[in-house]
Structure formats: structure tokens, C-alpha cells
Amino acid sequence: MALGNGKVALVIGASRGMGRQIAIDLAKNGYSVVVAAKSTSDAQSAAAPFPPDPNSPQSTISTVEREIVETGGRATAIPVDVRDQASVQKLVDRTIETYGRLDVLVYNSGAIWWASVEDTPVKRFQLMQRVNPEGLYGAVFAALPHLKKSSSSSSSPSGGVGGGGRIVVVSPPIYSRFFRGKTAYAMGKVGMSVLTKGLAMDLERQGLKDMAITSLWPAVAIESAATRRLTLSNPSEARDLRKPAIFSAAVLAVLRAPVSSVNGLLELDEDFLRSDAGGRVTDFSGYSVVPGAQPRRIMPATLPDLTVAEQDDEGKRMDSAKTEGRAKL
């Protein structure tokens, strides 16, 4: 049976690069896929080459939908502006109207600006916060009721392989070097990882044993529109790049893994694939953009454990939703 047999995945940030690859591979594995982003186009235009360069502006959710459908998969392109919660809610509502359920949410949308604080204008900082942590929070908030329904109706055994209601976030493990030279960007991305940790605790406390949220991040730089610009000026840089397929493979491995091994996990794509839960993959040579190259790892070999000795000793827990009622915003 295919991994996603009868299930529905929503991939936000699916027009190019990693998001496109994730959407295509989910469809190949039996998921009906909603591909979402801001960019749309006339995917049926006879004048445009097809499929377009996956790292070019010509690759849109419209062309990704066509790629999936023409290879026998099910896909629907729905535009979204993650800075607008009404747009995000409409996206989730249309997903349910179209397919009747939602089982997987992948949040790949991202705004990038790597510079020092003094070289990061406030408007650029605000854009990154709106697209990165705020966009993720809004998507999760809108999707959670439907992901919970998926979990409760899942035919998988509690905590078993492939269970219902999965969220995968593109955000990093938390460690000090990540902040260097890109503080404003790191503030948002680390905030996304904090959401992963916190929501995982919520799910456990609520006894939702078939639900999980996981953060993944590349161990090696991935070929994308951003890295393409670097390699155009210095072609040798391509030796340090991997194809987006490695990240997509890690996403699929997370969805196959038992909830207990991935809920709240902040992990690197390569490291997860090497693990027992990820399939014990050891040969990554096929993912190199330049055949025979050994791309340089950009992430630490070991990462800090965020738990503390008195992990469960927090005193009396406050719940504003119960003491003051749910906020009506």
C-alpha cells in the first residue's frame, strides 16, 4: 500500500525548489496534494517550455500541478499569501472542500535576508517574521482541527507507522552558530522550531498519540533559486550543493516513521535518513548536483540537547484560554 493511500497533503511554498520536489514526491507516493504559494501562471501555454526550470520564476504552483497530474497524480493548485490569515484560512477551507480531509501539512514558505542587524532594515525584518514564524503559526492554527480529525479516523495503530495528522516544518535545530551574521532571519526560523517543540508537548499532553510535528533542515546546501545565483558567478560552488530530492526523501521518511520517534524532533535531513527511523541510508552520492563531488556539510556534527534536569518541574501551569476564555481577534 502506498504511503499516502487516500490521504491529502497540503504543501505551502510548493512552487519551486524543495517545496516543488516534496509535492511531486508526495503525489508519487499516493497523496492527493494541494500545492500552495503566491505564484501562479498559465501552465498550459504552448509558448512556454514544459516543465520549466524548477528553480526559475517560470516554475509556479500552476506548473507543479500540471507536472503531477500529467504523471498520473492528483493535485490542486491554490494561491495563498501567508502574510494574510484570511488567505491562509481560505486555503485550508478550499483544501477540505476539494478533498474532504487533510492529513499532512508541510510548511516550506520562507523569506530570506542574511545580514547583520545594522544591515537589515526594519521592513525586511518584519517581512521575514510575517512569512516565517507568523505564516507557519497561521497555517498550523487553521489546519489543526482537520489534522486532529485525520488522527482520530486513522486506521494506523496508536503511535504506529504512518499515523494521521502530521506536520513537517522547514526550520533548523537550535544552536548558537545559526545566529551568526543573520540574526533577523534566525529569530524567525528559530521561532518556528520553538513552535515545533511547544506544539509537540501540547499534542502529548492532549493524548493525541497519532499526531506529530517535526522540523527538518538541510545538512548540506540545497540547489535552489538562491544558490543558483551564487553558482552563476562562481560555478565551482555547485560542488557543495545537493539536489532537493534528499530533503524530500527525508520528509517521506518522517511521514513513515512512528510518531514517538519524530514528534517534536528538530533534525537534519541527512542525519534523519541515517537513523533507524529514517531507514539507515548511508549512500548520499546520488544527491550531489555535481556527480562525484562530496558537498561540504554546513551544519554542526553534533547538536545540543535542549532538555534540562528539572524538565517537568515548572510549578503551577497557567492556561489563559481557561482563565480568560479564548481571545476573539
Rank of each mutant, 00 (worst) to 15 (best):
residue 241 L to N: 06
residue 242 R to N: 11
residue 242 R to W: 11
residue 243 K to L: 04
residue 244 P to W: 03
residue 245 A to I: 08
residue 245 A to D: 14
residue 250 A to G: 02
residue 251 V to E: 07
residue 252 L to M: 01
residue 255 L to F: 02
residue 255 L to T: 01
residue 255 L to Q: 00
residue 256 R to V: 06
residue 256 R to L: 06
residue 257 A to W: 03
residue 259 V to H: 07
residue 259 V to D: 07
residue 263 N to L: 00
residue 263 N to H: 01
residue 264 G to A: 01
residue 265 L to Q: 03
residue 266 L to A: 03
residue 267 E to G: 08
residue 267 E to Y: 11
residue 268 L to S: 02
residue 271 D to L: 12
residue 272 F to C: 09
residue 273 L to C: 08
residue 273 L to I: 06
residue 274 R to P: 13
residue 274 R to C: 14
residue 275 S to G: 04
residue 277 A to Y: 09
residue 278 G to Y: 07
residue 278 G to V: 02
residue 279 G to H: 05
residue 280 R to L: 09
residue 281 V to M: 12
residue 281 V to W: 09
residue 281 V to L: 13
residue 282 T to F: 04
residue 285 S to H: 05
residue 285 S to G: 08
residue 286 G to R: 09
residue 287 Y to W: 06
residue 289 V to M: 03
residue 291 P to D: 08
residue 292 G to H: 00
residue 292 G to S: 06
residue 294 Q to T: 14
residue 294 Q to L: 12
residue 294 Q to A: 14
residue 296 R to W: 11
residue 298 I to A: 15
residue 298 I to Q: 13
residue 299 M to C: 10
residue 302 T to S: 10
residue 305 D to C: 04
residue 305 D to A: 00
residue 305 D to P: 03
residue 306 L to G: 00
residue 307 T to E: 02
residue 307 T to C: 04
residue 308 V to S: 04
residue 309 A to D: 13
residue 309 A to I: 01
residue 309 A to E: 14
residue 314 E to P: 11
residue 315 G to A: 00
residue 317 R to C: 02
residue 317 R to A: 02
residue 317 R to L: 08
residue 317 R to K: 10
residue 323 T to W: 14
residue 323 T to G: 11
residue 323 T to A: 14
residue 324 E to S: 13
residue 325 G to C: 02
residue 325 G to P: 01
residue 325 G to N: 03
residue 326 R to F: 13
residue 326 R to V: 15
residue 327 A to R: 15
residue 327 A to T: 14
